[in-house]
Protein backbone atom coordinates (compact mmCIF):
# COMPACT_ATOMS: atom_id res chain seq x y z
CA UNK A 1 0.00 0.00 0.00
CA UNK A 2 1.45 3.36 -0.88
CA UNK A 3 1.29 6.35 1.34
CA UNK A 4 0.12 9.50 -0.30
CA UNK A 5 0.17 13.04 0.97
CA UNK A 6 -3.06 14.93 0.90
CA UNK A 7 -1.82 17.25 -1.82
CA UNK A 8 -1.36 14.31 -4.19
CA UNK A 9 2.18 15.37 -5.10
CA UNK A 10 4.01 12.08 -4.40
CA UNK A 11 3.69 10.85 -7.98
CA UNK A 12 5.46 13.98 -9.23
CA UNK A 13 8.44 13.33 -6.97
CA UNK A 14 8.33 9.66 -7.97
CA UNK A 15 8.52 10.70 -11.64
CA UNK A 16 11.51 12.94 -11.00
CA UNK A 17 13.29 10.12 -9.14
CA UNK A 18 12.44 7.75 -12.00
CA UNK A 19 14.11 10.14 -14.47
CA UNK A 20 17.16 10.44 -12.21
CA UNK A 21 17.45 6.66 -12.06
CA UNK A 22 17.31 6.46 -15.84
CA UNK A 23 20.07 9.03 -16.11
CA UNK A 24 22.19 7.08 -13.62
CA UNK A 25 21.68 3.95 -15.71
CA UNK A 26 22.45 5.80 -18.91
CA UNK A 27 25.71 6.92 -17.31
CA UNK A 28 26.88 3.36 -16.67
CA UNK A 29 28.23 2.51 -20.13
CA UNK A 30 30.38 5.60 -20.00
CA UNK A 31 31.78 4.53 -16.64
CA UNK A 32 32.57 1.09 -18.04
CA UNK A 33 34.34 2.62 -21.00
CA UNK A 34 36.42 4.78 -18.68
CA UNK A 35 37.42 1.68 -16.71
CA UNK A 36 38.38 -0.22 -19.84
CA UNK A 37 40.64 2.60 -20.92
CA UNK A 38 42.67 2.25 -17.72
CA UNK A 39 45.60 -0.12 -17.12
CA UNK A 40 43.80 -2.70 -14.97
CA UNK A 41 40.99 -3.11 -17.49
CA UNK A 42 43.49 -4.14 -20.16
CA UNK A 43 45.07 -6.93 -18.11
CA UNK A 44 41.65 -8.22 -16.98
CA UNK A 45 40.55 -8.62 -20.55
CA UNK A 46 43.70 -10.50 -21.52
CA UNK A 47 43.32 -12.79 -18.50
CA UNK A 48 39.68 -13.41 -19.33
CA UNK A 49 40.51 -14.25 -22.93
CA UNK A 50 43.26 -16.63 -21.83
CA UNK A 51 40.96 -18.39 -19.39
CA UNK A 52 38.35 -18.97 -22.05
CA UNK A 53 40.87 -20.49 -24.44
CA UNK A 54 42.21 -22.65 -21.63
CA UNK A 55 38.74 -23.95 -20.79
CA UNK A 56 38.07 -24.66 -24.45
CA UNK A 57 41.35 -26.49 -24.78
CA UNK A 58 40.58 -28.61 -21.72
CA UNK A 59 37.18 -29.59 -23.14
CA UNK A 60 38.87 -30.58 -26.40
CA UNK A 61 41.42 -32.72 -24.61
CA UNK A 62 38.73 -34.35 -22.48
CA UNK A 63 36.94 -35.32 -25.66
CA UNK A 64 40.06 -37.06 -26.93
CA UNK A 65 40.66 -38.78 -23.59
CA UNK A 66 37.15 -40.18 -23.53
CA UNK A 67 37.46 -41.36 -27.11
CA UNK A 68 40.69 -43.17 -26.34
CA UNK A 69 39.27 -44.75 -23.16
CA UNK A 70 36.17 -46.02 -24.94
CA UNK A 71 38.17 -47.38 -27.83
CA UNK A 72 40.46 -49.23 -25.41
CA UNK A 73 37.53 -50.73 -23.41
CA UNK A 74 35.93 -52.02 -26.62
CA UNK A 75 32.48 -50.52 -25.84
CA UNK A 76 29.78 -50.23 -28.51
CA UNK A 77 31.82 -49.16 -31.51
CA UNK A 78 28.85 -47.69 -33.41
CA UNK A 79 28.08 -45.13 -30.68
CA UNK A 80 31.58 -43.88 -30.31
CA UNK A 81 31.97 -41.73 -33.44
CA UNK A 82 28.57 -40.14 -32.85
CA UNK A 83 29.19 -39.29 -29.22
CA UNK A 84 32.70 -38.22 -29.91
CA UNK A 85 31.39 -35.95 -32.68
CA UNK A 86 28.97 -34.31 -30.26
CA UNK A 87 31.67 -33.78 -27.70
CA UNK A 88 34.01 -32.31 -30.27
CA UNK A 89 31.26 -30.03 -31.46
CA UNK A 90 30.51 -28.90 -27.93
CA UNK A 91 34.17 -28.26 -27.32
CA UNK A 92 34.48 -26.12 -30.42
CA UNK A 93 31.24 -24.31 -29.73
CA UNK A 94 32.60 -23.45 -26.33
CA UNK A 95 35.79 -22.22 -27.90
CA UNK A 96 34.08 -19.93 -30.37
CA UNK A 97 31.51 -18.67 -27.90
CA UNK A 98 34.36 -17.67 -25.63
CA UNK A 99 36.23 -16.07 -28.46
CA UNK A 100 33.18 -14.14 -29.62
CA UNK A 101 32.49 -12.84 -26.13
CA UNK A 102 36.04 -11.63 -25.83
CA UNK A 103 36.21 -10.56 -29.45
CA UNK A 104 35.24 -6.97 -28.92
CA UNK A 105 37.83 -6.43 -26.23
CA UNK A 106 40.48 -8.27 -28.19
CA UNK A 107 39.81 -6.18 -31.29
CA UNK A 108 40.24 -3.06 -29.23
CA UNK A 109 43.48 -4.36 -27.79
CA UNK A 110 44.73 -5.37 -31.21
CA UNK A 111 43.90 -1.95 -32.60
CA UNK A 112 45.74 -0.38 -29.70
CA UNK A 113 48.74 -2.56 -30.36
CA UNK A 114 48.76 -1.76 -34.08
CA UNK A 115 48.51 1.94 -33.38
CA UNK A 116 51.70 1.83 -31.31
CA UNK A 117 53.85 -0.13 -33.77
CA UNK A 118 56.05 1.83 -36.15
CA UNK A 119 54.90 1.28 -39.75
CA UNK A 120 57.42 -0.57 -41.96
CA UNK A 121 57.82 -3.01 -44.81
CA UNK A 122 55.69 -3.55 -47.88
CA UNK A 123 52.49 -2.62 -46.05
CA UNK A 124 54.01 0.47 -44.49
CA UNK A 125 51.71 2.99 -46.21
CA UNK A 126 48.57 0.96 -45.56
CA UNK A 127 49.52 0.45 -41.94
CA UNK A 128 50.08 4.13 -41.49
CA UNK A 129 46.73 4.95 -43.09
CA UNK A 130 44.92 2.51 -40.81
CA UNK A 131 46.81 3.74 -37.78
CA UNK A 132 45.76 7.32 -38.51
CA UNK A 133 42.20 6.17 -38.99
CA UNK A 134 42.18 4.41 -35.63
CA UNK A 135 43.67 7.44 -33.89
CA UNK A 136 41.03 9.68 -35.43
CA UNK A 137 38.31 7.27 -34.35
CA UNK A 138 39.62 7.19 -30.82
CA UNK A 139 39.78 10.98 -30.65
CA UNK A 140 36.21 11.23 -31.93
CA UNK A 141 34.90 8.71 -29.42
CA UNK A 142 36.60 10.48 -26.55
CA UNK A 143 35.06 13.85 -27.47
CA UNK A 144 31.68 12.27 -28.08
CA UNK A 145 31.77 10.86 -24.58
CA UNK A 146 32.61 14.31 -23.21
CA UNK A 147 29.63 15.80 -24.99
CA UNK A 148 27.37 13.03 -23.71
CA UNK A 149 28.48 13.87 -20.20
CA UNK A 150 27.50 17.52 -20.73
CA UNK A 151 24.08 16.48 -22.05
CA UNK A 152 23.58 14.18 -19.08
CA UNK A 153 24.35 17.10 -16.78
CA UNK A 154 21.85 19.28 -18.65
CA UNK A 155 19.17 16.67 -17.99
CA UNK A 156 20.15 16.30 -14.33
CA UNK A 157 20.10 20.06 -13.81
CA UNK A 158 16.78 20.26 -15.65
CA UNK A 159 15.27 17.86 -13.10
CA UNK A 160 16.60 19.97 -10.23
CA UNK A 161 15.11 23.08 -11.81
CA UNK A 162 11.84 21.23 -12.27
CA UNK A 163 11.73 20.40 -8.56
CA UNK A 164 12.28 24.05 -7.71
CA UNK A 165 9.59 25.15 -10.15
CA UNK A 166 7.08 22.73 -8.65
CA UNK A 167 7.96 23.79 -5.13
CA UNK A 168 7.45 27.43 -6.06
CA UNK A 169 4.09 26.67 -7.65
CA UNK A 170 3.03 24.76 -4.57
CA UNK A 171 4.05 27.60 -2.31
CA UNK A 172 2.02 29.98 -4.41
CA UNK A 173 -1.02 27.86 -3.59
CA UNK A 174 -0.27 27.78 0.11
CA UNK A 175 1.29 24.32 -0.06
CA UNK A 176 -2.06 22.59 -0.52
CA UNK A 177 -1.99 22.00 -4.26
CA UNK A 178 0.35 19.47 -5.95
CA UNK A 179 1.92 22.12 -8.21
CA UNK A 180 0.93 20.49 -11.47
CA UNK A 181 -2.36 18.89 -12.38
CA UNK A 182 -1.41 16.04 -14.67
CA UNK A 183 1.39 14.25 -16.47
CA UNK A 184 1.20 16.46 -19.55
CA UNK A 185 1.63 19.61 -17.49
CA UNK A 186 4.57 18.02 -15.71
CA UNK A 187 6.09 17.05 -19.08
CA UNK A 188 5.66 20.56 -20.49
CA UNK A 189 7.23 22.05 -17.39
CA UNK A 190 10.14 19.62 -17.73
CA UNK A 191 10.65 20.68 -21.37
CA UNK A 192 10.62 24.33 -20.30
CA UNK A 193 13.22 23.65 -17.60
CA UNK A 194 15.31 21.59 -20.00
CA UNK A 195 15.38 24.37 -22.60
CA UNK A 196 16.28 26.94 -19.94
CA UNK A 197 19.23 24.89 -18.70
CA UNK A 198 20.34 23.98 -22.22
CA UNK A 199 20.17 27.59 -23.43
CA UNK A 200 22.65 28.61 -20.74
CA UNK A 201 24.98 25.73 -21.53
CA UNK A 202 24.65 26.13 -25.31
CA UNK A 203 25.73 29.78 -25.19
CA UNK A 204 28.78 29.03 -23.01
CA UNK A 205 32.22 29.23 -24.60
CA UNK A 206 33.17 25.79 -23.25
CA UNK A 207 30.17 24.10 -24.89
CA UNK A 208 30.69 25.93 -28.20
CA UNK A 209 34.31 24.83 -28.14
CA UNK A 210 33.53 21.22 -27.25
CA UNK A 211 30.85 20.90 -29.92
CA UNK A 212 33.19 22.37 -32.53
CA UNK A 213 36.02 20.08 -31.40
CA UNK A 214 33.74 17.09 -31.86
CA UNK A 215 32.71 18.33 -35.30
CA UNK A 216 36.34 18.86 -36.28
CA UNK A 217 37.23 15.39 -34.99
CA UNK A 218 34.40 13.93 -37.08
CA UNK A 219 35.85 15.68 -40.12
CA UNK A 220 39.34 14.26 -39.45
CA UNK A 221 37.82 10.79 -39.04
CA UNK A 222 35.99 11.14 -42.34
CA UNK A 223 39.18 12.23 -44.10
CA UNK A 224 40.99 9.14 -42.81
CA UNK A 225 38.10 6.89 -43.86
CA UNK A 226 38.11 8.43 -47.31
CA UNK A 227 41.87 7.88 -47.57
CA UNK A 228 41.57 4.17 -46.84
CA UNK A 229 38.59 3.82 -49.15
CA UNK A 230 40.22 5.67 -52.04
CA UNK A 231 43.31 3.47 -51.76
CA UNK A 232 41.07 0.43 -52.21
CA UNK A 233 39.18 2.01 -55.13
CA UNK A 234 42.44 2.80 -56.94
CA UNK A 235 43.46 -0.81 -56.53
CA UNK A 236 40.41 -1.79 -58.61
CA UNK A 237 40.90 1.10 -61.06
CA UNK A 238 37.64 2.70 -59.94
CA UNK A 239 37.18 6.49 -59.95
CA UNK A 240 37.60 8.28 -56.66
CA UNK A 241 36.06 11.45 -55.24
CA UNK A 242 39.45 13.17 -55.44
CA UNK A 243 39.66 12.49 -59.16
CA UNK A 244 36.12 13.78 -59.68
CA UNK A 245 37.02 16.92 -57.75
CA UNK A 246 39.91 17.51 -60.11
CA UNK A 247 37.59 17.16 -63.10
CA UNK A 248 34.99 19.50 -61.58
CA UNK A 249 37.67 22.08 -60.81
CA UNK A 250 38.85 21.95 -64.41
CA UNK A 251 35.29 22.38 -65.70
CA UNK A 252 34.80 25.34 -63.39
CA UNK A 253 38.00 26.99 -64.59
CA UNK A 254 36.94 26.49 -68.22
CA UNK A 255 33.51 27.95 -67.48
CA UNK A 256 35.09 31.01 -65.87
CA UNK A 257 37.35 31.54 -68.87
CA UNK A 258 34.35 31.29 -71.23
CA UNK A 259 32.39 33.76 -69.08
CA UNK A 260 35.30 36.20 -69.17
CA UNK A 261 35.53 35.93 -72.95
CA UNK A 262 31.75 36.38 -73.30
CA UNK A 263 31.85 39.43 -71.07
CA UNK A 264 34.65 40.89 -73.19
CA UNK A 265 32.64 40.26 -76.36
CA UNK A 266 29.51 41.82 -74.78
CA UNK A 267 31.49 44.84 -73.65
CA UNK A 268 32.84 45.16 -77.19
CA UNK A 269 29.23 45.30 -78.44
CA UNK A 270 28.35 47.89 -75.82
CA UNK A 271 26.05 45.56 -73.85
CA UNK A 272 25.77 45.62 -70.04
CA UNK A 273 27.45 42.84 -68.08
CA UNK A 274 26.03 41.07 -65.02
Amino acid sequence: MTESKNDGSDWIQAWIEQQREQLRRAGMPGADAAGAAGGTGDSDQYRDLGMRWLEAGQAYLQGWQQFVQRSASGSAAAEIPLKFGEEMLNAWQGTWAGAAAAGEGATRQFADLISRLPAMGLAREQTEAWRELLAAQSEYQHLEQELRTVWAKVQTDALALLETAIRERREQHGGAAPGVEDYRELYNLWVECGEKVFAQVAHSESYCKLQAQLGNAAIRLKVRQQGVLERALKHFDLPTRSELNTVHKQIRELRERIATLEAQLAAGRGEETP
Binding site: T2, E3, S4, K5, G8, S9, D10, W11, I12, Q13, A14, W15, E17, Q18, D182, Y183
Partner: peptide, 10 residues
Protein backbone atom coordinates in the same frame (compact mmCIF):
# COMPACT_ATOMS: atom_id res chain seq x y z
CA UNK B 1 7.99 4.15 -3.14
CA UNK B 2 5.50 6.80 -2.11
CA UNK B 3 3.55 7.95 -5.12
CA UNK B 4 4.57 5.04 -7.33
CA UNK B 5 1.01 3.78 -7.77
CA UNK B 6 -0.25 7.23 -8.70
CA UNK B 7 2.72 7.67 -11.05
CA UNK B 8 1.93 4.39 -12.73
CA UNK B 9 -1.66 5.50 -13.17
CA UNK B 10 -0.88 8.92 -14.67
Amino acid sequence: TPGSAELAAV
